[in-house]
C-alpha cells in the first residue's frame, strides 16, 4: 500500500518508552518495549500468540500496572480516554441487551457517541436489532462491538483482533472501514494474526516476539529495502555484516537483511537465490530465524 505522505505528521498519537510488564504469576510478558504510533497512520502490532501484544494494549489503556512511560497524545491515558476508542480481543458485551438497547446505553455512557452511526454500521453488518446479544454468534458479537466502537468520535482507535470470527465479506468491510478512518484523519493501532489483511491496510508494523519488538518500520519499506537470501547450507555468513535473521533449514541457509552492504555481498555469491519479501514471508522469516542470528 502506498504511504500517504500528507498524513505522516511528526505528531505522535502514542509514545511508548521502556514498557515492561511482569505478571504476578512470574510471566515476563513485555520486556522493555519502545515504539511510537504517528498521528494519521494505521500501525499494526504483529506477533505470534504470547508475544505480548495484548499486554501492550492493556498497558496503553491502563488496564494493568506496568513499568515504563506511555503517552497518548502527549498525555496520560486517563486525561484523553474519551478520545480513544477500543475493541478488545474478547468481544463480550452485555448479553441481556439487544443492539437497540446497547446503542441507548452507549449514548449515556460514552462521550461523543453518535447513535446514527452505530445504527448505520449495524445495518451494514445485518445485525438483528431486536434480538438479544446472548443469541449472537462470535462474528455477530464482533460486528456489534465494532459498530459501537466506530460510533464513538475518537482520534485514536485501538483494535485487538478486530476481524476475529467475521466472514470474508464482513472482514473486507471492516478493513475498508479501518482504512477510511485514517483517510478521515484518525489514528489506528491494530493487532491481527492474519498477515494478509494487515498488509492491505497498514502503514507501519511492529513485530513482537517474546515480549520484545523485533522489527518496526513501514510496510512499503519492506519490499523496497529488505531481501531474503537462500544460500548453500555450508555458506559462512560474514560476521561484520548485519542480518535481521538467519536460519539453517534442511537444504538452505535463509538470511533476512536490510543492510545495504550485506545485500551487495550476498547478491554476488554463487548459488544464491534472492527474494523480495511480502509481509507474510518477511514476518515468517523474521520469526523463524531470530534464534540463529
Amino acid at each position: 500500500m502506498e504511504r500517504i505522505k500528507a498524513n505522516a505528521t511528526e505528531k505522535k498519537a502514542l509514545l511508548i518508552q521502556g514498557l515492561d510488564k511482569t505478571y504476578r504469576s512470574g510471566v515476563h510478558a513485555v520486556k522493555g518495549v519502545d515504539f511510537t504510533v504517528e498521528e494519521g497512520e494505521v500501525h499494526a502490532l504483529l506477533g505470534p500468540n504470547g508475544a505480548g501484544k495484548t499486554t501492550t494494549i492493556k498497558s496503553i489503556l491502563g488496564f494493568i500496572n506496568y513499568k515504563g512511560d506511555i503517552k497518548v497524545f502527549q498525555e496520560d491515558i486517563d486525561s484523553v480516554r474519551a478520545n480513544v476508542a477500543f475493541v478488545p480481543e474478547d468481544k463480550s458485551f452485555y448479553e441481556f441487551m439487544t443492539p437497540e438497547v446497547a446503542i441507548k446505553v452507549c449514548k449515556r455512557i460514552i462521550d461523543q457517541f453518535d447513535p446514527n452511526t452505530a445504527f448505520e454500521f449495524m445495518r451494514r453488518f445485518n445485525l438483528p436489532m431486536k434480538k438479544k446479544i446472548k443469541g449472537f454468534s462470535h462474528g455477530m458479537k464482533t460486528a456489534l462491538y465494532l459498530s459501537l466502537c466506530l460510533a464513538q468520535k475518537s482520534s485514536l482507535y485501538i483494535f485487538d483482533e478486530p476481524t476475529w470470527g467475521l466472514d470474508p465479506i464482513r472482514r473486507d468491510d471492516v478493513l475498508e472501514i479501518i482504512r477510511n478512518l485514517v483517510i478521515d484523519g484518525k489514528t489506528v493501532l491494530y493487532t491481527s494474526h492474519i498477515i494478509s489483511e494487515v498488509e492491505k491496510i497498514t502503514d507501519r508494523i511492529s513485530i513482537m516476539f517474546d515480549g520484545k519488538i523485533l522489527f518496526s518500520g513501514y510496510t512499503d519499506d519492506i519490499k523496497a529495502n529488505y531481501r531474503i537470501y537462500y544460500l548453500p547450507l555450508d555458506f559462512k555468513l560474514p560476521q561484520e555484516l548485519e542480518y535481521l535473521s538467519a536460519k539453517r533449514d534442511k537444504e538452505k541457509l535463509i538470511v533476512l537483511t536490510g543492510d545495504e552492504t550485506a545485500i551487495e555481498t550476498l547478491r554476488g555469491e554463487a548459488d544464491t537465490q534472492e527474494v523480495i519479501p511480502n509481509l507474510e514471508i518477511f514476518f515468517q522469516t523474521l520469526l523463524r530465524g531470530k534464534n540463529y542470528v
Binding site: F63, R81, A82, V84, A85, F86, P88, D90, E95, I109
Partner: peptide
C-alpha cells in the same frame, strides 16, 4: 463476563 473492558476503555 469480560464486559469490564468496555467500561474501563470509556471511563
Amino acid at each position: 463476563k469480560g464486559t469490564i473492558y468496555f467500561l474501563l476503555a470509556k471511563k
